[in-house]
């Protein structure tokens, strides 16, 4: 926003990143690939051998191209830090990933919006995972307590033969605001996709989760897992879809939504579909209050009821 010098912005992002639990030293290491974006400004972008990060600032955000070269095994996790520090702002990230054959990388993304009153954060990702490549992506959000934020992450992921895509999206600090998560993964032969979402909704949070996995290659495997805890007047709808379209494809949809209180609303819509007689897709969905026996087990060890609930919630979202 106006009034922020680049240096101050960078320091502000680093401070917020650290406050949110990020590893500040990783952002200062020369051996670590990293990218720090505040609103539509790239404050830091560092590649390492075998991994290139290219950026282009746009009016409302940044276009990011991430290339992991064929056969490259990136030894240290790549750190991405996206954020909007002022109360108002718009950040649109267009993210293209090309993880070439036999490459391996672990990406840790922190999305930081500590003061958001009227902030929109969008990510539109187009991701290609090559043959026998592995891409682990963990995105953790840190929001303030106003709830004035709209988060819209969308990704289309293609996983080549024998490739692995694992992603975890976690939003349990601060109010969610409005979340519209939409990830779709297509798996070729013997590819693996694992989508995990963990969200703690409170206040008037409005949460939509949509996970889709297409198992199009023989022996492909997929897991769409979601863990939500809802309190106050939060509402959530989780759609977990898995399509077994090839022989020996195996998929599972696993959704758990815990409602803590009387005004929160949870819905789960699992869709499992099989178009090949040798494919198998299963689902389980559990929605309801926190199991009384779990609470009493911890209470019987001396915890107060609130402490017991807190331990259970933290476990689910861990």
């Amino acid at each position: 926003m106006i009034g922020y010098s680049v240096e101050k912005e960078y320091q502000g992002m680093i401070d917020a990143y650290e406050k949110a639990g990020g590893d500040k030293s990783a952002l200062q290491s020369k051996d670590v690939a990293k990218l720090v974006i505040h609103e539509n400004r790239v404050l830091s972008a560092d590649s390492v051998k075998g991994l290139k990060i290219e950026t282009k600032e746009t009016k409302t955000g940044v276009n990011v191209n991430l290339l992991v070269e064929e056969g490259a095994k990136i030894p240290h996790p790549v750190h991405l830090c996206f954020g909007v520090l002022p109360k108002e702002g718009l950040q649109e990230i267009v993210f293209k990933v090309d993880a070439q054959n036999n490459s391996e990388v672990h990406v840790i993304a922190h999305c930081i919006f500590p003061s958001a009153v009227k902030v929109i954060h969008k990510m539109d990702a187009d991701i290609e995972i090559g043959k026998n490549a592995r891409f682990d992506y963990k995105e953790t959000h840190y929001h303030g307590e106003s709830g004035g934020i709209e988060v819209i992450p969308k990704a289309r992921v293609k996983v080549g033969k024998g490739g692995v895509w694992q992603s975890t999206f976690a939003l349990s600090q601060g109010l969610v605001g409005k979340l519209d998560y939409d990830f779709e993964v297509t798996c070729q032969e013997k590819a693996v996709a694992e989508l995990i979402v963990k969200v703690y909704g409170r206040g008037s949070d409005d949460i939509k989760i949509w996970e889709k996995i297409y198992l199009n290659g023989a022996g492909a495997r997929g897991l769409a897992k979601s863990r939500l805890v809802l309190g106050d007047k939060a509402k959530a709808e989780v759609r977990g879809e898995t399509y077994g379209n090839a022989p020996y494809a195996r998929g599972h949809v696993d959704c758990m939504e815990l409602v803590n209180g009387t005004e929160a609303v949870a819905r789960a819509i699992p869709i499992v579909s099989v178009t090949n007689g040798k494919a198998k897709v299963t689902h389980e969905a559990a929605i309801g209050s926190i199991d009384r026996k779990q609470i009493e087990t911890l209470m019987a060890r001396g915890l107060d009821e609130d402490e017991a609930v807190d331990v259970i919630v933290r476990g689910i979202l861990r």
């Binding site: 863990r227 758990m256 199991d291 026996k293 779990q294 009493e296 087990t297 911890l298 331990v311 259970i312 933290r314 476990g315 689910i316 979202l317 861990r318």
Partner: peptide, 11 residues
């Protein structure tokens, strides 16, 4: 100690 102890994911 419960006859069928509870399971707590993440603990």
């Amino acid at each position: 100690a419960w006859q069928e102890p509870a399971r707590v994911e993440g603990l």
